[in-house]
Design a protein around this nucleic acid. Structure first.
Length: 213
DNA sequence: GGCCAGGACACCA
DNA sequence: TGGTGTCATGGC
C-alpha cells in the first residue's frame, strides 16, 4: 500500500523522534541569565565548536565584561586574549566590539532585544543570517528558525530539501511548515544540533533518523 | 599531523 | 551569482 505524508507531518515526526531520543535541551545555554550573553555566544561559536566558545564566554564572565558597554570600551588586545580559545580571535574581537556599539545605540540591551530587526542585525559586519536568527530566536524571543550546517545536512539527507537550497530558502521551508511557536523553534534547532553531534558525529543520515520512526 | 567544529566576508571571474 | 581563500583555536 502506498501513500504520501506531507512535509508538515514529516517534520513533526522528526521532531518527536529527536525529542524522544534526547529529551528537552532547553537552549540557549546561558550562565548569567543575561540575554546579551546569548548574543555574544552566537558570535563566538561561529565556525567553532561550542566547548571552545564556552571557554571564551567564561573568560568574559570572570573578567566581569559580559556587558555591551564593557566590551565596546575594552582594549581590543585584552578582548582578543579573553576570547582566544574560540578561534578567529582578531576577527571575532572586532565583531564583538561592533555589535556592542550597535547595542548601545538602543540605549540599553533590553531596548535592543525588544526593538532590533533582522535587517538591522544583518547590516552589522560579522552578523550573517544564522547568527542573526540565533540572536532573534534565543535572545529576543522572536520566531525565526535557525538553519545551520547540521540542519541543512540532516534534511538534505532526509530528502526533504535540495542540497543547493540557500539559507533563506531553507528558513522559508521550515517557517512555512512548522507552526510559529518560539519554544518549538528553539527546541527543534537544539535537538538537531544535539543529535548531529552525539549520534552521528555530524553526518546525519536518513537511516539514522528514520530507524526510530 | 590531519580533520572538524553551532560562519561570515572579501574578492574574483 | 557562484566559487574560493581567509580568518585560528582546541579536541580527537
Amino acid at each position: 500500500m502506498y501513500f504520501r505524508i506531507s512535509y508538515k507531518v514529516m517534520l513533526m515526526e522528526v521532531y518527536d523522534t529527536l525529542l524522544k531520543e534526547h529529551g528537552r535541551q532547553n537552549w540557549w545555554p546561558c550562565k548569567t541569565g543575561n540575554k546579551f550573553e546569548i548574543c555574544i555566544g552566537a558570535i563566538l561559536t561561529q565556525n567553532t565548536n561550542w566547548a571552545n566558545a564556552e571557554k571564551a564566554i567564561d573568560n568574559l564572565i570572570k573578567a566581569k565584561c559580559m556587558a555591551p558597554k564593557k566590551i565596546a570600551e575594552m582594549d581590543v588586545r585584552k578582548l582578543q586574549s579573553l576570547i582566544r580559545s574560540s578561534g578567529f580571535f582578531r576577527q571575532k574581537a572586532r565583531r564583538l566590539k561592533e555589535f556592542s556599539h550597535f547595542v548601545l545605540t538602543f540605549g540599553s540591551a533590553k531596548q535592543f532585544l525588544k526593538n532590533v530587526t533582522r535587517d538591522e542585525l544583518l547590516n552589522i559586519n560579522g552578523i550573517g543570517p544564522e547568527t542573526a536568527d540565533s540572536i532573534l530566536l534565543y535572545a529576543c524571543g522572536k520566531p525565526f528558525f535557525v538553519v545551520d550546517a547540521y540542519t541543512k545536512r540532516m534534511f538534505t539527507a532526509l530528502g526533504m530539501v535540495e542540497g543547493t537550497m540557500d539559507y533563506e530558502g531553507m528558513r522559508g521551508f521550515f517557517e512555512g511548515k512548522i507552526i510559529k511557536d518560539i519554544a518549538l523553534y528553539r527546541e527543534f534547532h537544539a535537538l538537531i544540533v544535539k543529535h548531529s553531534k552525539t549520534c552521528c558525529k555530524g553526518f546525519v543520515t536518513e537511516k539514522c533518523i528514520l530507524r526510530n520512526l
